[in-house]
Amino acid sequence: MTHRDHPALVLHAANQDRAAGDLPLLHAVLERECERDGGRGAADGLRMAAVLIGVLGGPADHARLVALAGRSPLLSDALGEHGFPGTAAEVGAWAAALDAGEDAGGRPDGPGPVGPRDRSAFAWAALAAAQGNGPLVRGAFLRLLDGAGPRDGRLLGLLATGLDDLGAYRHAARAQRLHASLLDEPWDRGAALAALARLQRRAGDPEAALASLDRAAGVLEDGLGPHFPAPTVPTTGWRDTPLGARLARERARVTDEE
């Protein structure tokens, strides 16, 4: 395996090992990836490589990152989004904060409780997906799904989307079902159940899809129950809203395909 053939795997292995001896390889991966055209997955991979270099390296790597960012708009954007420091003395603290799951100001890096280990896995998986390594991405997502729990609502939503993009509809439905169960606003849960119904339909389970649509309508009509607070936004007249129309369209699709 070389950094040219499988940069996503190299990044993943370096992230797990955290060995200072990996610095030359990380430098080569970052330089190589800066030369490639890519989408958001590539940007996440660039940021991951830069953070690992900052964690494992030292102030001298600041000049290297600045020079590469000057040649790669994608790297420049990836670093700029997270407050890349202007001085070499600050690069270690910057990388450590991102590695711990915070931005440069000590705030959580992104909305929702997605831990640093999960974010690293997603950055690696996004880069692997951009390089056509679908089976590797699927395996990574399924391992995250197997380890997810009630505190992982944000993660479960991301997994549902990622598995849906891969065409793994049955697994995506599993993630989406768990995600929906953790939402405590009727509008949010109703929308999540509508998305679940679509995934169940795509997975070839029309009965489950219809049951999810029925649950969505029940939540919007009657609320979540006495143990939940009153909804922030009332659901009166929900059938005449875009979500109501979406539920009706999905029900028509399910019945047409039965």
Rank of each mutant, 00 (worst) to 15 (best):
A245V: 14
D99L: 06
R170C: 08
D103P: 01
L155G: 04
L127Q: 02
G149F: 12
G45R: 03
G147N: 14
A128M: 06
R119T: 05
A172Y: 02
A100C: 08
R170N: 09
D61Y: 02
A125P: 01
P150L: 15
D165P: 01
A50I: 07
A192I: 11
G244I: 15
L26H: 05
G21Q: 12
D118P: 00
N133Q: 08
L52N: 02
G110S: 07
G58F: 06
A121N: 00
S76A: 10
E35D: 12
G92F: 03
R117W: 08
E207P: 00
G41C: 15
P234G: 08
G153C: 10
A175N: 03
R215Y: 03
D22H: 11
G45Q: 05
R177P: 00
P186Q: 01
A148S: 07
L213A: 09
P186T: 01
A89C: 03
P111D: 09
L68A: 07
H6R: 07
A173H: 01
R249V: 15
R4N: 09
P226C: 10
A175F: 04
R215H: 07
A121F: 01
P113C: 12
A197W: 00
G237S: 12
T2Y: 04
P135K: 08
D77C: 10
G204E: 02
A19C: 14
E90K: 06
P226G: 12
D103V: 14
D240M: 14
H227F: 10
A100S: 09
L30Q: 04
P150M: 13
T2V: 12
A230H: 06
F228D: 03
P7C: 09
L52V: 05
E31F: 08
R32D: 14
D256E: 14
A211H: 02
G106C: 14
H12G: 13
V254G: 03
G21K: 13
E221L: 07
L75I: 05
V137H: 01
D205G: 05
P135E: 15
A13N: 12
G86Y: 02
A20R: 13
G134N: 11
L247G: 02
A13S: 13
D184W: 06
T2I: 15
P135Q: 11
R189I: 13
G244D: 09
R189H: 06
M48K: 10
R107H: 11
G190V: 05
R143W: 13
R249H: 13
L74K: 00
Q176F: 07
H82C: 15
A129F: 06
R154H: 10
Q16G: 14
